[in-house]
Design a protein around this nucleic acid. Structure first.
Length: 501
DNA sequence: ATTCCCAGCGCG
DNA sequence: AAAGCGCGCTGGGAAT
């Protein structure tokens, strides 16, 4: 028999800690339920007083996503343990080797070892011991002396620093991957994440460690590591992504403002390839040549995508030249042509005007975001310019996943990555065709902005691991990876057969 | 020994 | 003066 406890007068030290643990848990439970209910009463009151359909819609929308999110969190994503251990070992070897080498270089310079993960040591080493000119990066609108990748790349102009910097890059790359491969995968070999449908400014989902502190963010896994993520035995992955999604939304807005050139460029072919052709007319003439590697694991097309995005969202040529490793004059020229070709300044000035009139924006899907900063400030303007495309695309993904979750139990939800979503389903060719058709159907989410309407096309792919089969990093050696589904997939699960043999 | 912040970096 | 936006995690290192 538990005592009556009045929590409004409960003293933590005088009373609570003297109760037996069962009673303490009861109190904890009671507070968890009752305080939540009290918060709800207060919040719904606020919502009523605000009398805004947008706020109520957003609340309903995000609340409705919780079941789907919980389903994904409980299921987790199976990983290939053997492959995972092999990769982790491989990166660990690379890391020890380059760090050994790095320490030899460092000893020669300043008689001490050098930890490539320590910003402090790196600064002292390059700008102190080696006397190289200080390089700056910008964090949180602050300009600081830094040794991040861009800064070190600039230091490669000093030839004697090149081998040292290369060691640091190799070590950092390896470490990043090791941490994903080794941190907290449950004993069943599954990677679990928390998915939060209501934690971002834009209405995107966020992903993080699971409730037990294991697993991690499933939204920042590199193409290379995605190969570790596999379908359960007897299952196959099906994935959609929204093609050039944010660009379409920018195109929709421009079109509603009376300029449909950007939307037309998208409708007449691959937009990012078109942009790549504009930047590298000598190297890129079609989609195939656009997919050649340009820098690290980025293709020309990837770079064009980033350059286009950056320019759409008001990135300047200087920033672009650093991000895309291109000469400044080329970027200035590119952006001049790009803006002129598509009339992007109309998009920017429209957002600026809305911001100044209302201090808020409403997306084609009815999500409203308030901007509390100075509406004449460029910083707020940039947030606002990025808001509508980001929000719209993220919410479409959620809508499609939610529709499937309500109606199609054979689609087991696994991950949400902003412009795309991945499920697994029982590995059967007829079912595969039906489900691909089903996703294509529910994937049609018309967007209306002012007087214009557009629907973002989906690309559907299937496979047994989460990496693209055709991604350049695999050099054609990922036969089980995702490939675009065009009515039939004649493959069988190769690695699985080898594993059983 | 633990907590907190920063720098750096992955994804969309 | 110049700066795309949105997230979350790790390791280093200072603070507690």
């Amino acid at each position: 028999m538990s005592p009556w406890i009045d929590t409004s007068t409960l003293d933590e030290f005088q009373t609570l800690h003297k109760l037996d643990p069962a009673d303490q848990f009861q109190i904890y439970n009671g507070l968890d339920c009752c305080v939540t209910a009290e918060v709800f009463e207060q919040l719904s009151d606020l919502l009523r007083k605000q009398n805004s359909p947008h706020a109520q819609n957003l609340y309903n929308f995000e609340r409705g996503m919780q079941g789907l999110a919980l389903d994904m969190m409980r299921r987790g994503f199976l990983t290939d343990s053997l492959e995972r251990m092999k990769l982790a070992e491989q990166y660990q070897k690379i890391k020890s080797r380059v760090e050994h080498l790095l320490n030899r270089y460092a000893s020669a310079v300043w008689g001490l070892p050098l930890n490539p993960a320590s910003p402090k040591q790196l600064r002292e080493f390059f700008y102190g011991a080696m006397k190289l000119p200080e390089q700056y990066a910008i964090y949180n609108k602050r300009r600081v002396v830094s040794c991040n990748r861009e800064c070190l790349e600039r230091l490669q102009a000093y030839f004697y620093a090149i081998p040292i910097i290369n060691c640091i890059f190799e070590s950092r790359d390896a470490q990043k991957k090791i941490s994903v491969l080794t941190t907290g995968i449950s004993s069943s070999g599954r990677f679990h994440s928390t998915f939060s449908p209501a934690s971002t400014e834009t209405g995107r989902w966020s992903s993080s460690k699971d409730a037990f502190g294991e697993g991690g963010n499933a939204q920042n896994i590199t193409p290379e590591l995605r190969r570790i993520f596999i379908a359960d035995p007897g299952k196959k992955l099906i994935h959609f992504d929204q093609k050039q999604a944010e660009s379409v939304v920018v195109g929709l807005i421009l079109s509603a403002l009376g300029d449909d050139r950007y939307l037309r460029a998208f409708q007449s072919g691959d937009l990012h390839t078109t942009v790549a052709k504009m930047i590298w007319p000598g190297e890129v003439h079609d989609k195939k040549s656009a997919e050649k590697i340009f820098y690290r694991h980025f293709s020309y097309r990837d770079m064009a995508k980033r350059g286009g995005h950056l320019s759409n969202y008001r990135g300047k040529p200087k920033r672009m030249s650093e991000a895309l490793k291109l000469p400044l004059d080329l970027c200035e020229n590119f952006q001049y042509i790009y803006y002129k070709a598509f009339g992007l300044e109309k998009f920017h000035s429209y957002i600026s005007k809305e911001l100044q009139l209302h201090q808020s924006l409403i997306t084609p899907l009815g999500m409203q975001r308030h901007f509390f900063g100075n509406p004449y400030d460029d910083e707020i303007l940039k947030e606002a310019i990025a808001f509508i495309p980001q929000s719209t695309v993220g919410q479409i993904t959620s809508i499609v996943a939610h529709r499937a979750w309500l109606k199609e139990p054979r689609l087991e939800p696994l991950t949400h990555d902003h412009d795309g979503f991945t499920w697994q389903f029982p590995d059967d060719r007829r079912l595969e065709r039906d489900l691909a058709g089903y996703i294509r159907d529910i994937g049609k989410v018309p967007l209306k902005f002012l007087n214009k309407e557009v629907t973002i096309p989906l690309e559907i792919s299937t496979g047994w691991n989460w990496a693209s089969a055709s991604h350049p990093v695999f050099d054609g050696k990922n036969p089980d990876g995702l490939i675009e589904y065009k009515g039939e997939d004649s493959r069988v699960r190769t690695t699985w057969r080898e594993r059983l043999a």
